[in-house]
Design a protein around this nucleic acid. Structure first.
Length: 547
RNA sequence: GCGCACGUAGCUCAGUUGGAUAGAGUGACGGAUUCCGGUUCCGUAGGCCGAGGGUUCAAAUCCUUCCGUGCGUACCA
């Protein structure tokens, strides 16, 4: 819609001012003004043009309007205002027609094929299985899955991938911590290792271990089985938590693969050949300063063990060798310093890094009555994602995690999340959907019958046209979500849609003695319902028929 | 110290590439709704957009300095 107007203006100035502007880009905008006295759409094109061709913007505006006047049948009138804005007023009939479009396209309304079935991999969560997922992981999980859904809506083929490492120091500590609890269950004195894990889940694993293996591993701390058993347990638990949020990864990629298939060595060798590494103090360093970093980084520790950086590079090299058209990584803000190194290394080896897109999200603070709840992962002193889901429910958790833009800190108000009242924005949305379902049900009782023949031209009330305008924004909202990969816009949009529906509902009855009008309004609310349902579906939130 | 974010109503946050009177929700106060679900709607109050300077027709938005907060600055991931 906005794009149509923009195109119209673009064509117009190319026609009238072709000699003056030739191939100069005029960076004008078309937007929906917040004040409706400025029309449905407004453009600053004349103001922008004024600085290029040194003419009075009002005059330019007049020339443009003269050219498009009466040529577009959806435009009711055009006004030129003060500094030089051009304001467009659209005919009601245009908005009324949207109802028919929505009803006929239904689930596919304004679905796009921008992706043309291109393959995109979205990597998210990727927490090592040392403990239950935290609230922070939750935000990433929901973001990753919602972004995947947005991509799918736009015709991409998405692979959701989870990267983890079940080797290394952290996992060793996990095994030792479980061992300590195991020995405790066998009546020994508890000796939790230094920096070990103290959360209650360790006891659960130990207990299950005991049930499976009895006393067989008494005094066998070094047994790898503690790590393997714990890893398997934690991965199962993580998957089950994600499933509660309706999130299922297509692939779990273990870092170990990169050692087994020689990728780590290969990459290290390549970097050495490029002369970008050197040895110092027994470690192998990567000359990151050559790419603008403050300091060089260690790739291989003096112990001979690589740091996380080297496998990260190898992993991404491998991703780029597969036939993905795009790679999306979702990381917490604490990773913002590390990924540029990965990209530099890949560039150095002539990989096409333009395929990689990194999205960083800020952290989550759990809040109760305006007070921060402090948490410590190691001590196990935290509310897990799993607990949060059981307290607040999947729909609320999903909505809360994407209702703020990912770049800003999120305060998760645990009390608000539990409220099943109008204070909770999720219920506000779902209630609107349920209400529509109910009205349609009611219309059947009143024997309105089929409303397929409802006349959309009867939708003339301000509240009706207003909500149709909101529906017309769906397309550009989705496009914004797609280009920015920021689901927040859709959350805000849904709230707006609900507001306008409730406003309409408050002032006008759908089912009345007037059968013709009832039918047209039923058509209207049915189309609203479809938009709700489509949007909620993209957000992975249920659209209930009743509540 | 340095790097990257951020600072908008009492609170939580929107504000597309600079645009016309800076908006929502929530809290506070006051109203509406005999009705298809009172989990709804309407109104009022609340702001020098962290502070100063600059750029231009136009700045919450861009540049600069300062103040404040968060994250990073590991041979942890």
């Amino acid at each position: 819609m906005t794009n149509n107007i923009k195109q119209l203006l673009e064509n117009t100035i190319n026609k009238i001012y072709s000699d003056i502007i030739d191939d100069q880009q005029v960076n004008f905008t078309v937007e929906r003004p917040n004040n409706d006295k400025y029309g449905d759409f407004s453009s600053n094109i004349a103001l922008k043009l004024a600085s290029v061709i040194k003419k009075n913007p009002i005059l330019i505006a007049e020339n443009i309007v003269e050219e498009i006047k009466d040529k577009n049948k959806m435009i009711e009138k055009i006004e030129i205002v003060k500094p030089g804005f051009i304001n467009f007023f659209i005919k009601d009939s245009y908005f009324q027609n949207i109802v028919e479009d929505v009803l006929s396209e239904n689930r596919n309304y304004k679905k796009t094929n921008f992706g043309k079935n291109k393959k995109v991999q979205v990597e998210f969560v990727s927490a090592n299985p040392t403990g239950p997922l935290t609230i922070g992981h939750g935000r990433q999980a929901v973001l990753g899955d919602t972004i995947s859904r947005i991509l799918e809506w736009n015709g991409y083929e998405v692979t959701r991938e989870y990267y983890f490492n079940d080797a290394g120091r952290q996992m060793r500590l996990l095994g030792e911590s479980v061992y300590a609890r195991y020995m405790e269950l066998l009546g020994e004195k508890l000796k939790i290792p230094k920096d070990g894990y103290e959360g209650g889940y360790i006891k659960d694993i130990a207990k299950l271990f005991l049930e499976n293996y009895g006393e067989k591993y008494r005094n066998n701390q070094s047994e790898k089985i503690f790590i393997d058993f714990s890893t398997e347990y934690m991965l199962r638990s993580i998957k089950s938590t994600l499933k509660k949020l309706n999130i299922i990864h297509d692939a779990y990629f273990n870092e170990k693969t990169l050692y087994d298939n020689g990728k780590i060595d290969e990459i290290l060798k390549k970097l050495e050949q490029k002369g970008s590494t050197y040895e110092s103090e027994g470690a192998i360093w990567f000359k990151t300063t050559e790419f603008g970093a403050e300091k060089d980084r260690v790739l291989v520790k003096s112990s001979g063990e690589p740091t996380y950086r080297l496998p990260d590079i190898a992993y991404h090299a491998q991703k780029l060798e597969q036939d993905y058209d795009q790679i999306i990584d979702i990381f917490g803000a604490d990773h913002h310093a590390t990924y540029p190194d990965v990209v530099s290394a890949l560039k150095l080896m002539d990989y096409d890094t333009s395929k990689i897109k990194v999205l960083l999200h800020q952290f989550v603070t759990l809040v109760r009555k305006n007070k921060k709840i402090k948490m410590s992962t190691r001590k196990g002193d935290f509310i897990t994602l799993d607990e949060l889901i059981s307290i607040a429910g999947s729909d609320v958790v999903r909505y809360f995690f994407i209702m703020r833009n990912m770049g800003s800190h999120l305060n998760f108000d645990i009390e608000l999340a539990q409220k099943e009242t109008d204070e909770n924005p999720v219920y506000y949305l779902q209630y609107a959907h349920a209400r529509i379902s109910n009205v349609i049900k009611h219309s059947k009782l009143k024997e309105i019958g089929s409303f397929e023949d409802g006349n959309i031209e009867l939708l003339k009330e301000k509240e009706e046209i207003d909500i149709l305008k909101v529906i017309s924004e769906f397309e550009e909202t989705m496009e914004l979500c797609f280009t920015t990969l920021e689901p927040m816009y859709l959350a805000n949009y849904l709230h707006k849609l609900a507001t306008y529906f409730h406003k309409f509902y408050q002032r006008h009855r759908v089912v009345t003695e007037n059968k013709e009008l009832s039918k047209s309004r039923l058509k209207l609310i049915k189309s609203i319902k479809i938009i709700f349902s489509n949007c909620l579906n993209i957000l992975g939130i249920e659209a209930p028929e009743n509540m």
